[in-house]
Design a protein around this nucleic acid. Structure first.
Length: 276
DNA sequence: ACGAGCGCCTGTCGGC
DNA sequence: TGCCGACAGGCGCTCG
């Protein structure tokens, strides 16, 4: 589920508190409960337990789709994958079925990693780079200018859809926001990245930033049972709108599969490069 | 260097 | 009603 806007929303909530929950900042970790061992990518459960207890959460951050808790001296990093979520609740609340890891915090609250599908992972590391080093640029990083982005596109020479999903190319996009960005930019998902003009690259970068910004403003998207709060799902232009009219030209939105991922686009507004 | 296929998991939905 | 396959926001691995 969670792409950049959803992770950003969760990070903001943990940092600032809200929805009846306090902030987790400056709270000491007093206890650990692990219910699914594979949730912990590293270190071993025994070492995790020994190292993490007593450390204090000094910052909450995000890099791509990763959520970072800065402790002292370690960093605790989460990837939510398809169904993960981080929830604050009273330390003695009943434990729901899909809770995988609990951190009991100072002040009678606990941070729960809930993950129905068990794909999510947590890392406790001294150097966050150990986990994050392979990531591409942050979409909002000012260093990522249209010229740099265009250069990167030319160097890759792949179809836009799988390229934008590649976290080593750009960190944070998932299936929803990629489809939305390509629609906004009026680019077909199969377009080869090396065919983009400087102007098209600039428009694509602006479109990516726009859909991510909209997602953040709407507190992310809530689909199915997984997400509380966000309502960006009510503002999708193409994602999961198969057969419904394109908001620009009324042509039915089409669904296809690209790189084994469902892909939604307007066959009229987003020209198929293979037909040109 | 790339894409396809698969594994990791659980839950929901539609068709028969 | 019940069973069965397809599908779901992700990503790492192997293989050709």
């Amino acid at each position: 589920m969670p792409e950049l806007p959803e992770v950003e929303t969760i990070a903001n909530g943990l940092r600032q508190g809200g929805f009846g929950c306090p902030s987790i900042l400056n709270r000491r970790i007093e206890g650990v409960r692990l219910f699914w061992e594979r949730t912990l990518a590293t270190p071993s459960p025994e070492e995790f337990h020994r190292r993490v207890i007593g450390q204090t959460i000094t910052a909450v951050g995000r890099r791509g789709k990763y959520l970072l808790l800065t402790l002292m001296p370690d960093s605790l990093i989460f990837h939510l994958r398809m169904s993960g979520d981080l929830i604050l609740e009273p330390v003695d609340a009943p434990i729901p079925l899909h809770h995988r890891l609990l951190l009991d915090l100072q002040g009678g609250i606990r941070l729960a990693f809930n993950d129905t599908r068990k794909f999510g992972r947590a890392w406790l590391v001294l150097d966050p780079g150990q986990v994050l080093n392979g990531l591409g640029p942050e979409p909002f990083d000012p260093v990522l200018t249209p010229v740099v982005f265009h250069d990167n596109l030319l160097r890759s020479h792949r179809q836009l859809k799988p390229l934008l999903l590649n976290q080593a190319f750009l960190a944070g996009l998932g299936n929803i926001y990629t489809d939305e960005a390509l629609f906004l930019a009026r680019l077909h998902p199969l377009t080869s990245s090396r065919d983009l003009s400087p102007l098209q690259a600039e428009v694509l970068l602006a479109s990516i930033r726009q859909v991510l910004q909209e997602g953040i403003q709407h507190h992310g998207a809530s689909i199915d049972w997984v997400y509380r709060g966000g309502d960006f799902q009510n503002h999708f232009r193409v994602y999961q709108r198969t057969g419904q009219p394109c908001q620009i030209c009324s042509t039915p939105v089409q669904r296809t599969v690209v790189g084994q991922r469902a892909t939604h686009y307007c066959p009229n507004c987003q020209n198929n490069p293979q037909k040109v």
